[in-house]
């Protein structure tokens, strides 16, 4: 049985600087549910812009984009979509410094109707999955770079999203720590049956994916 598409993009266009910079220049893309996709390309090719479009952090000017059954071009308030369907992992972990590790993982659940006790239970469960349960009450500034990124991964998964979008998740880490993070992402991807879309510069990282997309000048150059 063929899997259904979780992301469907047709002729997606986005410009910056009053049309002078064509960040996305007619993207066509389909990603199936549960797929692990790597997006590669030089700086400024449009790969992060594409990721932002899928995650509804930005809006395109032309084309169609449907993610998890929702037409992002026609939906006005996309915050609920982001909360329910998307989990972001950034290059910089972007944790809130004055909150504990546990509280950082709880943050995405404020927009859901989950009670405090359930929030705590779910966050601890995920921290256990990323091997940081014992550091739940620590401040993120006391953690290493790899540990912080693991917290960010737990935060991305806490609302059980259908898609994880990772923008160079190992970019700020040494190769050994980077491998730990990649293995974690990969195992969570298979365990949670979640679609994983990852932007990376590193070919060996990209090769871990089911499919690699090469983006150049705002277009998908080839797919391998």
């Amino acid at each position: 049985m063929t899997k259904e598409n979780v992301i469907e993009i047709h002729n997606l266009r986005k410009t910056y600087d009053k049309g002078k910079i064509k960040a996305l220049n007619g993207i066509d893309l389909e990603i199936k549910k549960g797929e692990f996709i790597s997006i590669m390309g030089p700086s400024g090719s449009g790969k992060s812009t594409l990721l932002n479009m899928i995650g509804a952090l930005d809006r395109a000017e032309e084309g169609t984009i449907k993610v998890a059954g929702i037409n992002l071009m026609k939906t006005r308030d996309l915050s609920e979509f982001r909360s329910q369907e998307i989990g972001f992992v950034f290059q910089m972990h972007n944790l809130v410094p004055n909150l504990s590790v546990l509280e950082n993982v709880e943050i995405p659940m404020y927009e859901t109707r989950v009670k405090s006790e359930e929030m705590r239970r779910r966050a601890l469960e995920l921290l256990e999955a990323v091997g940081l349960k014992d550091k739940a009450d620590k401040n993120p500034t006391k953690l290493s770079g790899g540990e912080r990124q693991r917290v960010a991964i737990a935060r991305a998964l806490v609302n059980h999203p259908s898609i994880i979008l990772a923008d160079e998740p190992t970019g700020a880490l040494d190769s050994k720590t980077g491998d730990v993070i990649l293995n974690l992402l990969k195992s969570l991807h298979s365990k949670e049956q979640v679609t994983l879309v990852m932007v990376t510069h590193e070919p060996y990282v990209a090769e871990m994916a089911d499919r690699i997309l090469h983006v150049l000048d705002g277009k998908i150059n080839n797919s391998s």
């Binding site: 915050s79 909360s83 943050i107 927009e111 935060r155 609302n159």
Partner: peptide
């Protein structure tokens, strides 16, 4: 600013 960006990315509404 970055932190607010993250809060939006994880689904916080403008009014929150």
């Amino acid at each position: 600013t970055r932190e607010i960006g993250v809060l939006k990315a994880v689904g916080w509404k403008d009014r929150r």
